[in-house]
Amino acid sequence: MEAIIERPVSAAKPIDLGKRTSIYQPEQEGLIFPEVPVFADPAAHRQHLKERLVAACRAFALQGFDYGFAGHLTVRDPEHPELYWTNPMAVHFSQVKLSNLILADHQGRVVEGRHAVNRAGFVLHAAVHEAHPDIVAMCHAHTVYGTAFAALGKKLEPISQDAAAFFEDHVVIGDEAGQVAVEVKAGHKVANAFLGVKAAIHQNHGLLTASRHSIESAAFWFIALERCCQQQLMVESTGLKPRLVSEERARYSREHVGSDYIGWLHFQAIWEQLVATQPDMFD
């Protein structure tokens, strides 16, 4: 079966943001607001990425995204882009910490760390990272609603502002639907679908998200995509036809609440909560 891929066809009418990245950034100076960090050297950048990768895994645990050893999150190393950091094989999301992260190459060889790499994680994520140098992070987990929705083999509809964040910004992949991804060719087919989009619904498998910005963005948009799948399944269970957000309004919402930056910004609240409640992340 061929992948079902539709690319974004139109952008919303832009708003003059001045020097701001997003309309959500305050125009008034002196207010507390998250700032995207800037790093003086690769070591500081690497430490930051590893901490956020651990936090993303812990966030997945809080969301109940665990399913045995399934599920993998990756972020590209800032100094060695051919390598990526990922969670260790057969370690629960809630037990991932700085000390058990592993560093792997695109061939699945662990170059730092004591744990093995998840074979399916290597096949899918390494292929995407290798094919798309602009993608810095990726997330996948076997979730309840995402997996159920993936069985329908269709895209999300813009039934809400939240769902509009994915309007014309996700694809359905039909290739090798339901076949476990342990062969390299499966990873290449998934990689081909991630051209210019942040999310994919792999038929009979589940959800994948990718970010050209940060692991925080990839993780938040995965959480959001799972919620949107749950909401659409709930709406469809009523048997009533929902009133959809118009294409023009859906594009407008996508531009202002669906960007990589907004995903990063959303995750800052999750980060602060995790830092306050799970200090063992940094062990």
Rank of each mutant, 00 (worst) to 15 (best):
L101F: 00
E35C: 08
A165E: 11
M1F: 11
W264V: 13
M281H: 14
A127P: 01
R243Q: 11
D105C: 09
T21G: 00
H188A: 11
E82P: 01
F60Q: 06
A120M: 12
H142M: 12
Q107T: 11
V197H: 08
H106K: 11
A137R: 13
G146Y: 10
R58L: 14
Q268S: 12
V117E: 06
L225H: 05
L195C: 06
I215L: 08
G18W: 02
A90E: 06
L244Q: 05
A210N: 09
Y252P: 01
P279T: 01
A218Y: 04
A150V: 01
L98W: 02
A150L: 08
E157M: 14
L83P: 01
G108T: 12
E226R: 03
D66G: 04
H256L: 15
V172M: 03
A276M: 13
R20H: 03
V117H: 05
N192S: 14
L207N: 07
F39D: 04
Q231H: 08
G206K: 01
Q273T: 07
G71F: 04
M281P: 08
P78R: 01
V96S: 00
T147E: 13
I201Y: 00
P279K: 05
T147S: 15
A104V: 11
T74P: 06
W264N: 12
A3P: 10
H129A: 03
I270S: 07
T86A: 13
F167I: 00
Q232N: 10
H142N: 13
R46G: 02
Q268W: 14
E216D: 14
K50D: 00
C229L: 09
L83V: 04
A199I: 09
S253P: 00
L225V: 10
